[in-house]
């Protein structure tokens, strides 16, 4: 079965007539009302042999399910990561039964950093990072994962 693909910011809009007919027929034949997805892609990181996706789930019942850092095949709550595509900036997920593809919002443009000279010749696999409106909880969780140390953090951080 072909999964229902949509980006969180680009869902196809039907014509006005079609939408009017759908309103008459009722919601059973109409896709859910257009709204921002409760699951927002906040980052993709690729390092060594790992790929991780960072999400914010604004409808999570538990606060610990609100910010997610998951690799391919990993699941937390109802959300399972099926595929991470760093080059395209997209992540395919299953949320309960619905499969969707999440992309980054186009704005704001991220500030960038490049490779340091001393590491260019490194043997490690090249990696990449993109964070888009990632909250501090996600950033710190990612940072802790990357440095492989336990983070001792003050709570009064921005």
């Amino acid at each position: 079965m072909k999964p229902a693909l949509y980006s969180n910011s680009r869902r196809p809009r039907g014509s006005a007539t079609l939408r009017f007919l759908c309103l008459l027929v009722g919601p059973l034949s109409l896709p859910a009302a257009e709204s921002a997805s409760p699951i927002q892609l906040r980052g993709i990181v690729s390092f060594s042999t790992n790929q991780l996706a960072l999400f914010e789930n604004t409808e999570a019942a538990n606060r610990w399910d609100r910010e997610l850092l998951l690799g391919t095949g990993q699941r937390q709550g109802n959300i399972e990561v099926l595929e991470i595509n760093p080059a395209a900036g997209q992540v395919r997920i299953r949320n309960s039964l619905e499969v969707s593809v999440l992309g980054f919002a186009s704005e704001p443009r991220p500030s960038t950093f490049g490779p340091s000279n001393q590491n260019l010749e490194g043997s490690a696999q090249p990696g990449s990072l993109r964070l888009q409106q990632a909250g501090p909880g996600l950033v710190f969780a990612l940072y802790q994962t990357l440095v492989q140390r336990t983070l001792l953090r003050a709570q009064n951080l921005p």
Binding site: S116, P126, G127, L129, Q132
Partner: peptide
């Protein structure tokens, strides 16, 4: 945080970028 890498980077580069 809005942050992105340009070109291939190592884990150390990513860590320094975040720091």
């Amino acid at each position: 945080m809005n942050l992105g890498s340009e070109g291939p980077v190592t884990t150390g580069d990513i860590v320094r970028g975040i720091e």
